[in-house]
Structures are given as C-alpha cells and as structure tokens.
Amino acid sequence: MHHSLLLALNDVSPQNLSIFDPASPPAEAIHQLSMLVLAITGGIFLVVEGILIYSLVRFRSPHNPRNGEPPQVYGSQPIEIAWTAAPALIVFVLALVIVRTEWEVRGDPEKLQPELKESKPLRVTAIGHQWWWEYVYESFGDEKLDFLTANELHVPASNRQVPSERRPVYLTLKSADVNHSFWVPRLAGKTDLIPGRTNTMWFETSQTGIFFGQCAEYCGTQHANMLLRVSVDPPEQFEKWLDNERKNAFESDDAAIRKGKQVFLAQSCVNCHRVSGTSARGKVGPDLTHLMGRATLAGGTIDNDRKGENLRRWIEDPQTIKPGCLMPAFGLSASDLDGVVRYLSSLE
C-alpha cells in the first residue's frame, strides 16, 4: 500500500481552503456574517464564562454542615424577564442580518444585480459521480458550448468593476448516483447534488489561479478523494482552453500512438470512458478527450506528471491508488499498457 503514498501529489505548495479568505461574492457575504456572529458569540462567551469563573472562585467553600446554609433565593421574576429579553433581542438582530445575507447568497444574482445583464456568464452543469465530477459546459455568453470535461473546472476571471467584463459562473448541480456536495470554500458555501433534484449556485472572482475544495457530503468509499479544482484563468487563456476543449480528440500520426489507440478502443475502457471523435462513448467514467489538459488524474488524487508514469500506475492498478474506486485493474499486458498510456498521453 505504501507506493500510494509516494504517488501522492508532488505539488506540495500549501493550498488555501479557508472560509476566512473569500474571493467571490457569496463567500464574501458569508464571511461578513461570520465575523458578526463570531463577535456576538465571543462576547456572550466572555460574559458567561466570566460569571462562572467568578462564582467558582468567590463562593467556593469546603463543605461543613455545621456552618449552616447560605441564604436561599428562590428566584426573581424581573431578573428572569431580563435574561429572557436580552437574548431575544440578540436573536432578533441576528435574524435580521441572516435574512440579508441569505438574500445575497441564495438570491438569483441576475435579478438582484441588473447590471449583470451586460456580463458574459459561463453556465456549466456539474454532475456528481462516485468519486469524480462531470462538467457539461452549456454556454458562455450567448454562445452555446455543449462539451464535456471532468474533474477540473476552468472558468474565466472576472473584472468586477466593469459590468461588460464581468464573468459570473452559474452552476447547475445534479447527481448521477448518491448525494454529493460542491464546496470550494473561497468561492461559495456548499450546495448539495442530490439525485432527482436540480440545484444551482454561482460565483465570480477576479483572482486567477487554482481554487481547491472537495466533495462535502459523504458519498461512499472514496468520498475523501472526490477533490475539486477550479482553475480561474485570465480571459484570453480561458478562451484558448475553451477552443481546445471543443475540438475532437487529437489524432496523432505517430504509429505507436495509433497502435495504442487501437488497444484502447479494443479494451473495455470504452464501456465507461468517452473520447470524442472515436467509438469510445462510455458515460460512466470521466471523459478523456483532452486528458492531458488536466493537472491531475484519478479525480485529483494524483498528479498528471506528463511522463505517463502516474497514468501508467493508475491504469495498471487503480485500487492501490484509490481503493474501492469503481475502475478495476484490467491486467493489461505490458505492451498493451504502454500503448494505452502512449495514446492517452497524446490527448492534449
């Protein structure tokens, strides 16, 4: 089992998933609310804990029945009313703030912010699978997209100052099997993906770079490795990525790669995986059309090291890397394995 340790992400630069470092309006609104709630609860904590400690220090005394009993106080209606009213007031104030934040976070942004009409939104349907994410790119602005990718969500950076340069991202969330939850803490709170229901969420950020997260609703054996990776690209770079993704899979002239492709298409790989422009049309597993455009493999569990080493290990025995995952080891011969890896490595 230990080589799965070695296979872990080589990229060890610290990842930021803190809810206190928001980079998108829903996360920012929640962050503001959380600061207020923390301040209020912190205040209550200090007061009550203070009274408790004071009482303990001040009134502690060794038990001695001969000392008699302290004065008995049975209660006081005014005091009771006071300490019912004070918390009630706090609750009332909190409730008002919660209503406002709820409106900001769960409201339809296009209704709440009319200027978003001028923006160029990206619409993606995210479908949760046991233990990976399927992304169906629906549209970008007025342009229909209609292609699939998996596990790594690419979105454009937004310029939130200029309405026409805003790039909000609207996600439609569905599940193919059990409950999942989409959670990238710095972008937004979580929203569940529930079989038989359709949920929505949105985010928008001007910070480029990778935002991390992972499935937050227990979804079975490999719940821990159902990782989320949102790449916020500068607009030009995003459109370049989009152009590439919309193409069919790259067809190489290299004889070795073509041979690998034949092996791939002849194996049961195609029952689950799709490579557009080929006869591989499976829908159970992730789309592989532009596999080499991704930074990770196995739902974000391991690096896509481009030398094919990790890919090879993954195909050879997925169960050592992601025990319990739905992809079995196929026992390919060394040469077949080489071919498949070579072919998949060509899918830029």
Binding site: I30, S34, V37, E49, E104, A216
Partner: peptide, 24 residues
C-alpha cells in the same frame, strides 16, 4: 463551561448562510 461553547457554535451553525460554509 463547555456546554456554553457548544451552544454558541450552534448559533453559528443556525445562521443559515454561515452554515453553507460550516455544514458537513
């Protein structure tokens, strides 16, 4: 001393939008 803290974190979780981050 401890139940108090559990109650206060409960208030955080009851604040619905805050819970979008904290839930699960």
């Amino acid at each position: 001393s401890m139940f108090l803290i559990g109650g206060l974190t409960g208030i955080m979780l009851a604040a619905a939008p805050f819970d979008f981050q904290l839930s699960d």
